[in-house]
Design a binder for these strands. Structure first.
Length: 424
DNA sequence: AATCCACAGGAAGCCCGGGAAC
DNA sequence: GTTCCCGGGCTTCCTGTGGATT
């Protein structure tokens, strides 16, 4: 029996057709769910008029080939920094085209690009300069960028999103320095930098020379309030959902939940989209508050499984060590305890263990991802260490790692070196 | 007030894989 | 081929430290 035959037995053709038909006709719930994606740039951005105007007026001189001030935008995630930057650049470029002016733009996410080298390489490519993805000295790349700018003779506006990732990781902001100074040695073209950061304290890390150049102008994005989120959501929901498919209460709940998480519009949109999808799958007529609550759980669950399944081997073993230790004892799990169990698990899996220094670092990474909670505490005479707790459902760990042959066995393994109970 | 624990976390440097230039 | 560069993951060595205990 071949595979297609098998499938047609397990799922009735009509059922499948129905699913497809529903999507084709937009379904009962959605008109266009893409409008709820956070990378979608709508035609208007409510409650960001001020920032748009500021950014627009700072960048406008580019149209007449004048040099613009560098600008630095900061605010927490989901406060609209990225979308405002994209919005303004889009408009600017359109205007430039209409009037036959040469303006190049580029958007780079520094955290995704990851390194100085790759960021500059991205910029080179945006100007049509082909560069290898590794192998050159960064200085060489900067030279090529300069050449490209010179030969195009255009205005080049660059958005460096999550610029803090660049500085913190390399501990070396000389590339930013070079980038902001590139204009001095240039005739014809020039470069304008729009730096975006989630980290409000980012400025403290910066070399003052970079700061004075990058921070010629500043743009602050405050978190959205619940009401503002509501406006944003209802704007998009109107176009994204079928008329009457969305209860106002559900919309308000999305806004309120996201407002609770530092006014994150991205989160609000996710909630709304997922709530819609849940309702759609349940063949509901409308989206209610209960769907939003389910969506909240699903969004969180998906985030956790995604993070877990992308963890490298040693982080997995470490996490299982935390799991075992926590099962054995409820309070006061500290680095030393976890490390001991981790070592034993490594031995059991015939894997060379890492040093405690490294494990401590891995624990910090897991903490940042919200997978564990690690807090530095002092037990006085009994030392200073980190208290560690699992930050996610144990079930999420066991089910995600259950499909990983290498570590699956460790989930059932019973470590002998489980932390002893001391009086603390 | 001094001591001392059990680490935290910074700094430097090693090693490896990947790639370009010569 | 050799030589150089880059970045990531890691180890080694180190100094720093909050607060109970002496």
């Amino acid at each position: 029996m071949n595979i297609t035959q098998k499938c047609s037995h397990s799922l009735s053709q009509q059922g499948l057709d129905l699913i497809f038909e529903q999507v084709l006709s937009g379904g009962q719930i959605f008109k266009d769910r893409n409008l709820l994606r956070h990378d979608y740039v709508p035609t208007s951005l409510p409650h960001r008029e001020e920032q748009i105007r500021r950014l627009g007026s700072v960048l406008a001189p580019a149209l007449s080939k004048e040099r613009v001030s560098n600008i630095f935008a900061y605010g927490k995630t989901g406060t609209g920094k990225t979308i405002v930057a994209r919005f303004v650049l889009d408009r600017l470029q359109k205007k430039a085209r209409d009037y036959g002016r040469a303006v190049d733009t580029s958007y780079v996410n520094c955290r995704l690009s990851g390194t100085n080298y790759r960021v500059i390489a991205d910029l080179c490519r945006a100007l049509g300069q082909e560069v290898p993805f590794t192998g050159l000295a960064v200085g060489e790349l900067l030279d090529r960028l300069r050449d490209a700018l010179k030969s195009r003779g255009s205005a080049f506006l660059v958005v460096l999103d999550e610029i803090d990732a660049l500085v913190k990781r390399s501990e070396d902001d000389s590339v930013l320095y070079e980038l902001t100074r590139i204009n001095e040695s240039l005739e014809g073209g020039w470069i304008g930098v729009i730096g975006i950061s989630n980290d409000l304290h980012f400025k403290d890390f910066l070399d003052p020379r970079v700061l004075s150049s990058l921070g010629e102008e500043e743009l602050v994005f405050k978190p959205y309030s619940s009401d503002e989120l509501y406006d944003i959501l209802s704007d998009r929901a109107e176009a994204a959902f079928q008329p009457g498919a969305l209860e106002d209460g559900a919309l308000r709940l999305c806004a309120a939940m996201a407002a609770g998480e530092h006014g994150d519009a991205r989160r609000a949109l996710d909630l709304l989209r997922v709530a819609g999808e849940i309702g759609e799958r349940g063949r509901e007529k409308g989206i209610l508050e209960s769907h939003v609550r389910l969506a909240q759980q699903k969004v969180e669950h998906d985030r956790v499984t995604e993070v877990l399944s992308s963890l490298p081997l040693h982080s997995r073993i470490l996490l299982i060590a935390v799991l075992h230790s926590e099962n054995a004892r409820k309070e006061s799990l500290v680095t030393g305890d976890v490390y001991e169990v981790y070592r034993e698990l490594c031995a059991a899996a015939a894997v060379e263990s890492l040093t405690q220094r490294r494990v401590s670092g891995l624990l910090n990474e897991l903490d940042l991802m919200g997978i564990v909670n690690a807090r530095v505490v002092s037990f006085g005479r009994y030392g200073r260490t980190k208290k560690i707790r699992l930050g996610v459902e144990p079930r999420a760990v066991t089910s995600t790692f259950g499909s990983d042959g290498l570590v699956r066995g460790l989930l059932e393994y019973a470590p002998k070196s489980l932390p002893k109970q001391h009086a603390r």
